[in-house]
């Protein structure tokens, strides 16, 4: 039965009249080596859940053959959003979230570092199957019960320092803003990503800041996370940019750029 669901999803387009229950958005920059196994794992698991869904690969101007590789898979319910140039992970997620049609919209990193099986815990927080119902559910490597594997000492220090700053400088009451596994209702995704101005590493931070400002409720859900080799995060460079962006978020807000 489960494999039949996958075969159906792979070969039969949903059509314009059906609203997918879930959109899965994978931002991708030069992911030709890693993305196909992740697509396989995602397709297998989500098809098992038995609802209509779509997959969106939001390319970020890849210079390798990521786009061709995904298109050649010939998946009826997968779309590739092409980008002429590299605009940053935030720009890819933004394009994906705004192009998505699903009632719920998940973005997940291309390396499956948060195993896709974790999406069920996030869905339960936003779809009403578990009270209270939230607008946003975010995967967290810092919440109680989370499991991190293979994370380097440098990345642990980097993450811990940033968590403290986020809490005390921006007042965001979320322990892990950066996990690449977040689920939004369609309404929250549209509003937040429309207002998003940051396109680099700190876009998550801005979106969560906006979510709190606009009054959306956020569930922080502990997930397992496996640091995949080949991570494109440069801790030193990104820490500097992150601090700069925190200041930019406060400045934007003071200037009224986030007025609702």
């Amino acid at each position: 039965m489960a494999y039949t669901n996958y075969q159906h999803w792979k070969t039969t387009p949903l059509g314009d009249t059906i609203v997918p229950h879930l959109s899965v958005i994978i931002p991708a920059y030069n992911e030709a080596e890693r993305i196909v196994p992740s697509i396989g794992a995602i397709a297998s698991y989500i098809c098992d859940l038995g609802f209509d869904w779509e997959l969106i690969i939001a390319d970020d101007g890849s210079k390798d053959n990521t786009v061709a590789l995904v298109e050649e898979l010939g998946l009826a319910n997968a779309r590739v959003l092409r980008a002429a140039k590299n605009g940053g992970k935030g720009s890819a997620v933004k394009r994906g979230m705004l192009a998505a049609r699903g009632r719920y919209r998940l973005f997940a990193d291309a390396d499956n570092s948060t195993p896709i099986e974790e999406v069920s815990k996030l869905l339960a927080k936003v779809d009403g199957s578990q009270a209270p119902r939230y607008d946003i559910a975010i995967g967290s490597r810092a919440a109680e019960g989370a499991q991190e594997s293979n994370k380097s000492l440098l990345r642990r220090i980097f993450s811990g320092g940033l968590r403290m700053m986020v809490k005390y400088v921006l007042g965001i009451n979320v322990r892990d803003t950066q996990c690449g596994f977040k689920l939004y209702t369609a309404e929250a995704a549209q509003r937040l990503h429309h207002a998003q101005t940051m396109m680099g590493f700190s876009f998550d931070l801005e979106v969560l800041y906006l979510a709190a400002k606009y009054g959306y409720t956020i569930a922080e859900v502990p997930v397992s996370w496996i640091d995949a080799p080949g991570s494109k995060v440069n801790p030193t460079k990104e820490a500097k940019r992150f601090i700069k962006d925190m200041a930019a978020i406060k400045r934007n807000d003071w200037r009224g750029a986030y007025a609702s």
């Binding site: 494999y3 196909v36 196994p37 098992d48």
Partner: peptide, 11 residues
């Protein structure tokens, strides 16, 4: 298992 089979098919 199914996820592994699908990964082999896609690749």
């Amino acid at each position: 298992p199914q996820p592994v089979r699908i990964i082999f098919e896609l690749t």
